[in-house]
Simulated scan of single mutants.
Amino acid sequence: MQATFEARLATLGVTLPDAPAPAANYVPYVIAGDLVHVSGQVAMVDGKFITGKLGADMDVAAGAAAARACAISLLAQVKAACGGDLDRLVRVVKLTGFVNSTPDFGDQPRVINGASDFLVEALGDAGRHARSAVSAAALPFGVAVEIEGIFEIR
């Protein structure tokens, strides 16, 4: 019998938090057919923002940890969209990662690998996805990373 996604997360020591509430005038996700489009999730741990600017006061490893935190919030939103049943998730389709970075910083892909690597580790082949990783001059609340995603559900 195949382990559930939440059981796989538990083996990694991860319990999904409640899905974060929107910080402005938008919804956290939209379901269109069999796709869930999740709004950008900012880097947070235990309700506190992970702030910093890559290339100035934050290194790639810390940025990747922030991206991992974003991926956990993305999965929490997918779980909420699926009525609390994460096993309705079929696959991660696409991530778009924004990295708060200096103009000369070029390791955005390595930062967003923190999310990508985590999703593959937690979800197996269902976690493999298309992706963009781009620089941003600034992000809301001074966070280091923000990631939005598209997910296929059943």
Score class of each variant (00 low, 15 high):
Phe105Val: 01
Val111Arg: 00
Pro109Val: 07
Pro103Asn: 14
Lys94Phe: 15
Asn113Ile: 02
Phe98Pro: 00
Val99Asp: 00
Pro103Val: 13
Pro109Cys: 12
Gly97Arg: 07
Asn113Glu: 14
Val111Tyr: 00
Gly114Trp: 05
Gly97Asp: 06
Thr102Trp: 12
Ser116Val: 04
Val93Gln: 11
Gly97His: 09
Ala122Gly: 05
Ser101Pro: 03
Asp117Trp: 00
Leu95Gly: 07
Thr96Met: 12
Asp107Ser: 14
Val120Ala: 14
Ser116Trp: 00
Val93Trp: 05
Gly106Ala: 12
Ala122Thr: 03
Asn113Met: 11
Lys94Gly: 05
Val99Trp: 11
Val93Arg: 05
Gly114Pro: 08
Glu121Gly: 00
Ser101Tyr: 06
Pro109Ile: 10
Val120Met: 12
Glu121Met: 03
Ser101Gln: 12
Asn113Phe: 10
Arg110Trp: 02
Gly114Glu: 05
Val99Leu: 09
Val93Gly: 01
Gly106Met: 06
Val93Thr: 09
Ser116Cys: 07
Gly106Cys: 03
Gln108Val: 11
Ala115Phe: 08
Asn113Lys: 06
Phe105Thr: 01
Val111Asn: 00
Asp117Glu: 10
Phe118Pro: 03
Pro103Cys: 14
Gln108Asp: 03
Val93Ser: 13
Phe105Trp: 10
Gly106Lys: 14
Ser116Asp: 04
Gly106Thr: 12
Thr96His: 15
Asn113Gly: 05
Leu95Tyr: 06
Val99Glu: 02
